[in-house]
């Protein structure tokens, strides 16, 4: 009995030793005297440390806490925290998401230093823009060469190719209802055919060949990389990355042009906007970090002298299909409802 009791007491003592107030595990990494800002981002995890190097060097007194998640989660988090925003800055989130956040009044317009270097189509035209882009991401196909060969498939070169009967059941694509990348492709198709009607006809035909709509932008490309499905409709950076990882992937940028969106920054509206947040935004479009962006993205908001990363088409700007971000944002709900009506629900597994 005594021993049991001392065991219980022991557990309690351990509990107190680990007591919340006393240690770093409760509050996270120990905060210092530094000014600290919280940055929400959807940039790829493995890119972030490289980008941040120059910031940490130039502003050693600013501590940056990164919350990284997929575009959808970051946006949802921003909106859910609307009453008491936790983030100071959003860095590299889809401009279409920032439009939603701005619509709810969560964003404070701010013109960062060096705004004039940013290409006009990569920013909100307002004097104090609600969002300022850093790069553009474009849709692309990931084609698994080995699996394509096994299945006797030729490498598709265009959106039109994807509707050929030979690809039936071999294509996976992001679900536009759950992934920004998926919406990118759908919205682009609807804007780049003679009429929206033609766009829907195209999507009807494409639907015939789709094996699965997946709940993330990168997943179709990953599935292609593992050979689960030969063709994944995903985005360019992802495709190129997997090629570089050594997977038997060919990155295909469709002939008709790619759908695209801008990854952009914004200042979060709150009672006390920290100067460090503005400093961060200034830095985030500086030429130096833009050179880093340019190492993985073919198109950056600030022109750099970095050579085009391996695997992208030689004139990436030309690859961009017609895209009106505002139109895409305004019509989103309508398009997704129509899309769900046509292709969701009925699409039991084949």
């Amino acid at each position: 009995m005594k021993k049991l009791f001392s065991f219980v007491m022991g557990a309690a003592v351990i509990g107190t030793a680990l007591a919340p107030s006393a240690n770093a595990w409760w509050w996270g990494k120990k905060g210092s005297e530094k000014a600290s800002i919280t940055v929400y981002t959807a940039l790829e995890d493995d890119q972030i440390p490289n980008y941040l190097k120059s910031f940490e060097r130039d502003y050693p007194n600013i501590e940056v806490n990164i919350v990284r998640d997929s575009t959808g989660i970051v946006t949802a988090k921003l909106l859910a925290e609307a009453e008491n925003p936790q983030a100071d800055v959003v860095w590299g989130l889809a401009a279409s998401s920032l439009l939603v956040a701005n619509d709810r009044g969560l964003i404070q317009g701010y013109a960062p230093k060096g705004l004039s270097n940013v290409k006009p189509s990569f920013r909100d035209p307002a004097k104090n823009p609600s969002w300022v882009g850093i790069d553009s991401w474009i849709s692309a196909f990931c084609v698994n060469k080995i699996e394509a060969q096994k299945n006797g498939l030729s490498i598709p070169k265009s959106w039109a190719d994807l509707t050929k009967p030979e690809y039936k059941g071999h294509i996976v694509m992001s679900n536009p209802a759950s992934s920004g990348t998926g919406y990118l492709s759908v919205a682009s198709r609807l804007q780049n055919l003679p009429s929206e009607e033609d766009g829907w006809n195209y999507l009807d035909a494409l639907h015939e060949n789709i094996a699965q709509y997946m709940h993330s932008g990168s997943k179709p490309c990953k599935a292609a990389g593992k050979g689960e499905y030969p063709i994944g409709v995903s985005f360019g950076y992802r495709a190129v990355k997997q090629v570089n990882m050594g997977q038997p992937i060919e990155a295909v940028f469709p002939k008709e042009g790619s759908g695209w969106d801008v990854e952009a920054n914004a200042l979060i509206k709150k009672d006390k906007i920290k100067p460090a947040a503005k400093t961060f935004l200034d830095w985030a479009i500086s030429p130096e970090v833009s050179r880093e962006y340019a190492k993985s993205f073919a198109i950056t908001a600030v022109e750099t002298d970095v050579p085009l990363p391996k695997g992208f088409p030689s004139n990436p700007e030309k690859q961009l299909a017609k895209n009106d971000l505002q139109w895409a944002a305004v019509n989103r709900e309508r398009i997704l409802a129509e899309w769900a009506k046509r292709y969701d629900g009925k699409s039991a597994p084949k």
Partner: peptide, 11 residues
């Protein structure tokens, strides 16, 4: 729910 909340921010 995931599609509505995370994909479309339709809380």
């Amino acid at each position: 729910i995931y599609k509505q909340v995370v994909g479309q921010q339709n809380f």
